[in-house]
Structure formats: structure tokens, C-alpha cells
Design a binder for these strands. Structure first.
Lengths: 118, 118
DNA sequence: GGAACCTTGACACGATCTTGGTAACGTTCG
DNA sequence: CGAACGTTACCAAGATCGTGTCAAGGTTCC
């Protein structure tokens, strides 16, 4: 049975148990639970936890920022609102047509992608 | 001459002057400057400022989170690192092929889109 | 049954973020 | 020139983040 309990997981990942719960609360890595409610970390989660640490350190990113990134990819409405805002960069009127067409194409693929993943 | 100074811009957008400077510092909306260094807000910026307010309020998002979203789309290395991390969701090996192909297609369009906007 | 674990919830503290205010100084314009 | 406005730089009150710790109680297992 290859699943570690929270203290063991903390041991091998470098996070504190407290932080593992926090990471879960941020919606980033939710361990599955034993029948009694104990968190169980499999190899997948352990690896992701280590990778997450590297990522945060390397780019000086915070957990809450990763939490937001997570929101961006689960909340479709938020994502498109944010995308729309950024895409409204100062542009001359003629840029619109081509760019908008491309955007439509991209979003079509996006929808296909999401449909394929459900 | 249709450009407002910072206090006027604050008036019509609902931001405080202090916050307009802060928004700029977050890398979200930089007004152009007069020869003397005064910030000048054109209709584009004013509209974006209003939209930004709505967005933040509607989704309960903070400026720093939008700042991070901005980082995500300018720092290519960061973006791919974050994407990679999220894509490493628990998935069975067979899910990969179709989804990955679609993702490739989507990214191709993304690149085209970015090229078209520069 | 008791030691050693797990759970959630709370309090706490330093660091950082948000936002306003003020000071010191340059610009615009009647 | 002087009033009204802009700039940056700094201080400060309150909120949030990251993290530890502790309490009250359930689980595991010898």
C-alpha cells in the first residue's frame, strides 16, 4: 500500500504538516482520505508537492497566487473575463479583424479540448 | 486633446489617484506621460480602468492577482512551468494522446494570435 | 487501555500588501 | 507671482499571507 500519512508526507516533501493542509485548502493538492478521514498521499501527490515547492521558489510565487492560477483554470467565466481584459490592449482599429478571427479559432479549440477532458 | 490628468481620471473611473499610481506600479495600466512627467489618461485607459474595477469586484479578485495574471502572460517561462504543473493532474496514460494533440493545435493558434498583436 | 497518530478549529505573530496621508519639490496658467 | 495641480518618497493603519502551536476529540494498534 503506497500512500503516506500527513507526517510522513511532510517528511519526504519538505512541507510542514500544517502547510500540507494549507496547500489543500488553497485548492492545489487535495490528498484522498482514508475511511476515517486521514489524508493519504500517493506518489503522484508527493511528486507534485515537491515540484510545487521548486516552482514557488524558482519564480518567487506564493501559494495564493497559485491558488488564483487554479481558479483561472477552473472558473471558465473568470478566465475569459481576465483574458478579455488583457486582450483589450491599446490597438488600432484595423488590428481587430484578424486578431478576433484568430481568437475565435483558438476558443473553438479550447472548447474541444475541454470537452475531450470531461 | 483628449487625455485626462490623474485627478480627472480618478474622478471618472472611481479609482483614487493613489490607486491609479498603484495600478500602474502593478504593471496593469501605465498612462503615457507629458513632457513634464505628468500622467495622461486617454479614453482607452479610462475604459480599461473602469472595466478593471468591474472585473475585480465581480470576481472578488485583487490587484496583485491581476498582476500575477499579467506575469503569467509576459513571462513565458513562468507560464509554461505553471501550466506544466497543473497539467500533471492524476490521469491515466491513455488520456494523453487526444488531449495533447488538441493542446498543440490550440497553442499554435495562440502563437499566431500573439504574433498578430505585436 | 494507552501511546502515538490523525482531524478540525482557533489564536498568534512577523512579513507583506493595500490604501491613505503628508512632505518636499516641479509645472501650468491666469 | 501665486494658486492649483502634478511628481516621487516616505510613514502608518488595517488586511492578508505564511506558518507555528495548542486544544479537544477521533483512530490505530500493540
Amino acid at each position: 500500500m503506497d500512500a503516506l500519512t500527513i507526517n510522513e508526507a511532510a517528511e519526504t516533501t519538505g512541507w510542514s504538516p500544517r502547510m500540507l493542509r494549507y496547500v489543500e485548502q488553497m485548492g492545489l493538492i487535495a490528498a484522498r482520505r482514508s475511511p476515517a478521514g486521514y489524508r493519504l498521499y500517493g506518489p503522484e501527490e508527493l511528486q507534485r508537492l515537491r515540484t510545487l515547492r521548486e516552482l514557488l521558489a524558482r519564480f518567487d510565487v506564493g501559494l495564493s497566487e497559485m491558488g488564483f492560477a487554479s481558479r483561472l483554470r477552473t472558473d471558465e467565466e473568470l478566465r475569459s473575463a481576465v483574458d478579455a481584459w488583457f486582450e483589450a490592449e491599446p490597438k488600432r482599429p484595423d488590428d481587430v479583424t484578424a486578431a478576433d478571427w484568430l481568437r475565435f479559432e483558438q476558443e473553438k479549440h479550447q472548447r474541444l479540448l475541454e470537452a475531450a477532458l470531461t
